[in-house]
Each structure stands twice: as structure tokens, then as C-alpha cells.
Computed example of a mutant assay.
Amino acid sequence: MNAEIKFKKKRSKREIILNTATQLFIQESYIAVGIDRIITESTIAKVTFYKHFSSKEELVFNCLKELKLDIQIAVEEHISELTPPLEKLEQLYIWYINWVNQNGAKGCPFHKARMDVEDLYPSIQVLLDEYRYWLFNIIISILKELELNNPRTLANLFLVILDGIINSSVSEKFLIKPEKTWDYIKTLIEQQRNQK
């Protein structure tokens, strides 16, 4: 008899709170979701919540910190095996759009945090900036592999297009089709290549 024993890693109360809060913030907003709701949906005691987080600001900070790390690992793993730089950029773009789409056209949690609570919770600004800086640097390093004349300008344009597409999907409540929009970005890159 070959019995397979599966052990489930028990998540800590802190992880449960972070996961619940992150999902609620993504699906709704950082302002609308209160601590009492997070406690209820996490099925933990209020004292347990405050044992791990002294305030909602600390919770939002930690949610964004974990999310940033998860995204960095996922993106870097996703594109690490790819060789051609254009393929890396396309896969980064498609991964990012699919990630936003999986949230039901609710937008990017980092954009949302900047809009919702950056002024209210100043401690998160450093995480929002780090995230944006990391994304910009990944894009620019790939564009440099393409040996373009002005990769910095193109990286900024790439981010503006990405932001615009995401914001448009939120306001119009539609999922983004990454393959179609990628064609526009690819055309811009090819134009840059032809100007060398």
C-alpha cells in the first residue's frame, strides 16, 4: 500500500491577515475596507490583529511590501529563461496585464494605493517608489539589450502606455487584451530600431 501523506503548511495568523487584507484592498479600495472587516473575514480576534499590526497604515505597508516582493519574484522567474530581449519585454508586459486582469479589472494595487492613501499613510510612499523604480529598471535593462538609441525615453513611454491601458480598463470595466495592445508597443520599438 503506497500511502501518500500530504502536509499542509499551516499559515500563521499574520499571513492570514495579510492575505485577506490584500485581496480586499485589490477588490475594493484601501479606504473602503476597514480593520473590523479584515478581522471578520480573517476569522481572527481583534487582539490577534493588534498583536501583529498596530494600525491600518502598518497593515497597508506590509501588504504592499509582500505584494511587491511576490511580483518581483514572479516576474523575474517568468522572464529569466527567455533569451531574445523583445520576447522578454513582451512576456513581462503580458504577465503584468494578466496579473491585473485576474483582479477583475480592478486596476493595479500600487496605483490604487497611490491614489487612495499615499497622503494618508506617508510610510507607503517609499514602497510605491521602490516598486515603480524596480519596474522601470527591468524595462530599461531589457530595452538596453535591444541596443536602442534612447531606452530611457522608450521605458517611460512603455510605462505610460501600461498605466493608461490599466486605468482605462478600470474606468470602463473591461479586461485588457494584452496581445492586441502589445502590437502597438512592438511597433514603437521597431520604429526606434529603424532610426538607428
Rank of each mutant, 00 (worst) to 15 (best):
Q195V: 08
F174W: 02
V170L: 02
G104F: 09
L157N: 10
G164F: 04
I142N: 08
K180F: 13
L89K: 05
N137L: 09
I140K: 15
Y96K: 14
F174Y: 14
C63G: 01
T43P: 00
S169Y: 00
G34K: 13
P122V: 10
L154Q: 00
K144A: 12
P84H: 10
L146Q: 07
F158L: 05
K186I: 01
E4M: 14
A155Q: 03
T22V: 08
I35Q: 02
C63L: 01
I140P: 03
L120K: 15
E15M: 08
I139H: 12
I31H: 02
L157P: 02
V126G: 05
L89W: 08
F61Q: 01
P151I: 08
D119E: 14
F110Q: 03
Y133F: 14
K68H: 10
S12R: 11
K88I: 09
I35P: 00
F25H: 05
D70N: 12
S169V: 04
S80N: 10
W95S: 05
V126W: 06
A3F: 14
P151C: 06
L143Y: 13
H52E: 05
E28S: 12
I5P: 03
A45M: 07
K9Y: 09
S171L: 15
L120G: 06
C63N: 01
K180N: 05
G107Y: 07
G34R: 09
Y50R: 06
H78P: 02
H78I: 01
S171T: 12
S141E: 14
F49R: 00
I31W: 01
F136C: 07
I142T: 11
L154I: 04
L67V: 00
K186D: 01
W182D: 03
A113T: 06
S54E: 06
K144G: 07
P84M: 07
L18N: 03
L148Q: 05
L69Y: 02
V75R: 04
P85M: 10
K180V: 13
Y121I: 11
Y30F: 15
F174V: 09
Y121F: 14
Q102I: 05
F174P: 01
E90Q: 15
K186H: 06
I94A: 04
N167P: 00
I26P: 00
L24E: 13
L89C: 08
K106V: 04
L120E: 15
D70I: 03
I44K: 05
S141I: 09
I97F: 11
Q91K: 15
T187V: 09
F158D: 04
L135I: 12
T48C: 01
W95I: 07
I165W: 06
T153L: 14
L188G: 05
F7C: 02
E145P: 06
L127R: 09
S80T: 07
K144I: 13
K13W: 00
K196C: 01
N156Y: 11
F136S: 10
E41M: 10
W134F: 15
K56N: 00
